[in-house]
Design a protein around this nucleic acid. Structure first.
Length: 575
RNA sequence: CGGGGCGUGGCGCAGCGGUAGCGCACUUGGUUUGGGACCAAGGGGUCGUGAGUUCAAAUCUCACCGCCCCGACCA
């Protein structure tokens, strides 16, 4: 492609709306433009990268035995009502009415649609396993779209769904898809980690999120560098730091703690470490009060709590409710003598002694509180977020906090949708059986954003060659010099003939410096620079964007050099 | 939805009661041409929208709309 004829509107100044590197660069390099909040159009360069990612996804999904289909974006409300998600999905589901006032949703994901398709076509166990996917536009009316392509309201997604005869077969499919995902993201040149996660609204028994590691990622994760354990913070477990008081002390005593209602303040006053505190928080779950106990140095994890309580709605109780339940203002809640609320406690409290807890009385705390002695055993569960200083649940080495961009997620759905929608097949035994489902998503647009987020420098993008819009950027540095122009044209023809995707900056009006800056910004992995200075010495320059040094070779060796450098680049994207 | 910020040529910004400006980009001509060239001459804006205050509003007031950030939320 000749730049002189292409729509590649690069901009020197960063548009004010962009905050993170990938967003800035996608706008600056002319990959996309914003149409409205969270809605973008992709220009030729952006579209080429999207197609590259889609190509890799297709190859790996097909290799994993999946078949590509295409489902509608506009989906009838009835399907959503069947599973209850017409209600449950809430405002994030984009709804539209047709001229007859019939309700539709713009698909945010397609479990209902695909399950409907399969239940109509699936008759016999002989048709299983079945694994179908599509790459299509999804709509989610996000509360707050942000960071460009990272959280948008309309985006490209690959969504795949598997149907198996039984649990064991589903597991097998799940791990095949898991492997396909590893290959996909490696081939996209991404540094990523599959992490254990919560399954949220999609539901199901277990799930992995594929996180591209990046500081600007929206998701907090816990990582173990020693053994590779990684989990979303909302799901992560850890081995807590040791208890402050490993042995039982004397009888419970009342301590006067006027106006001190945080663990931090009481800890200071009593000169006792936070690990020795029982923090009691009052939540309201589906209208009922629940007292949650965690160690003073830990935080309640609302996702874990919600899952444990199997609650639909969960929130911290308002002050009046706390007063009603604990007979004291906020800050003096404790488990001793507490009644009128379900009591759940985080397991990390077990094994500790001489605890400090609220006395259920204004301005008083209790010390030397013992589990089981001073209050009845609560319901135990893992209810806390991993804290700094925790050990890895697998190997015990210290966990590290990190951030990631979720580019994909795999779910083992089990029977959730096949039960709700009666997706059954006739088994060998002549009876109907529900199919066991899995589902597998990849944010295609987000993957492109994540690649840029992870691969850029002060001058621009550093595309992994597998997803770069073009492989080679050919620069004609002195367009008015016929000799130079001729040599560059020849390079263009030769490179194309050799099968490379070449972007040829043949612009007559742009100076050499301008072209260098644009080339750095666009970030194609390889560049070939043809200029008068080089030709005088009988050489053409070949450069890798990510490296400083330039190879100067005679015209006849340009192809060999490009081949060599391209091979190096491809190694970085090997599955 | 709560908190904060911003809407002025395509982009980045200044102006903050009294004739709409600057830089970049764009058009034309010329000189240039190895790290975002220079000179000259041009074109382009109902100052987000609507009410109001005023002799006079981009500027003050109110409402609405849009955009961005933090939070809540998020397959």
């Amino acid at each position: 492609m000749r730049v002189s004829k292409a729509l590649i509107p690069t901009v020197k100044e960063t548009p004010g709306e962009a905050e993170i590197p990938s967003h800035k660069l996608m706008l600056r390099a002319g990959l996309m433009r914003k149409v409205a909040s969270g809605i973008y159009e992709y220009l030729p360069l952006g579209q080429r990268s999207l197609l590259k990612v889609m190509g890799i996804i297709r190859e790996e999904m097909d290799r994993g035995g999946a078949q590509e289909v295409l489902m509608p974006i506009l989906t009838p409300a009835e399907l959503w009502q069947e599973t209850g998600r017409w209600q449950k999905y809430g405002k994030e589901l984009m709804r539209v009415k047709d001229r007859h006032e019939r309700d539709y949703a713009l698909g945010p994901t397609h479990e209902e649609v695909i399950t409907d398709l399969v239940r109509r076509e699936l008759k016999s166990y002989k048709q299983l396993p079945l694994n179908l996917y599509q790459i299509a536009t999804k709509f989610r009316d996000e509360v707050r779209p942000r960071f460009g392509v990272m959280r948008s309201r309309e985006f490209l997604m690959k969504d795949g769904y598997s149907f198996d005869a039984d649990d064991e077969a589903c597991d097998k499919t799940y791990w095949i898809m898991f492997g396909a995902y590893q290959r996909i993201f490696k081939r996209c040149g991404l540094n990523f980690a599959p992490v254990e996660a919560d399954s949220g609204l999609i539901g199901g028994s277990f799930t992995h999120e594929f996180m591209v590691l990046a500081e600007t990622g929206e998701a907090a994760i816990a990582l173990c560098e020693a053994c590779g354990y990684a989990a979303n913070l909302e799901k992560a477990t850890g081995v807590p730091a040791p208890h402050a008081a490993p042995a039982a002390g004397g009888a419970t005593q009342k301590a006067y703690t006027p106006g001190k209602h945080t663990v931090e303040h009481v800890s200071e006053l009593l000169k006792l470490p936070a690990q020795q505190f029982i923090k009691t928080l009052i939540f309201v779950a589906d209208g009922k009060p629940v007292a949650v106990l965690v160690r003073g140095d830990h935080d309640v994890n609302e996702v874990k709590l919600k899952n444990f309580l199997e609650a639909q709605e969960l929130a911290l109780a308002p002050a009046e409710k706390v007063m009603e339940v604990t007979k004291a203002p906020v800050g003096f809640a404790g488990p001793v003598g507490l009644s009128g609320a379900r009591v759940v406690a985080d397991k990390a409290l077990q094994g500790g002694h001489q605890y400090v807890a609220g006395a259920l009385e204004k301005d008083y705390h209790l010390t030397n509180v013992e589990l089981g002695r001073d209050f009845k055993d609560p319901e135990w569960a893992d209810l806390r977020s991993v804290a700094t200083g925790d050990g890895c649940p697998k190997c015990g080495k210290p966990l590290k906090a990190g951030r990631g961009i979720e580019v994909g997620q795999t779910f083992k759905l089990g029977l959730k949708y096949s039960k709700a929608m009666k997706c059954v097949y006739l088994g060998e035994d002549g009876k109907d059986h529900e199919t066991v489902m899995g589902c597998y998503g990849i944010g295609v647009t987000r993957t492109v954003g994540a690649a840029i987020e992870q691969h850029n420098d002060a001058d621009g993008i550093l595309w992994p060659i597998s997803v770069a819009p073009y492989e080679v950027h050919l620069l004609l540095l002195n367009p008015s010099d016929p000799e130079v122009a001729k040599a560059a044209d020849q390079c263009y023809e030769d490179l194309k003939k050799a099968g490379y995707e070449v972007l040829y900056d043949d612009r007559a009006e742009a100076t050499a410096g301008f072209k260098f800056k644009d080339a750095d910004l666009l970030g194609l992995p390889l560049s070939v620079r043809v200029g008068a200075k080089g030709l005088k010495e009988g050489v053409i320059e070949v450069k890798r964007r990510r490296l400083k040094d330039v190879a100067k070779v005679p015209a006849a060796q340009v192809l060999d050099k490009v081949k060599e450098f391209a091979a190096e680049e491809w190694k970085l994207c090997a599955p």
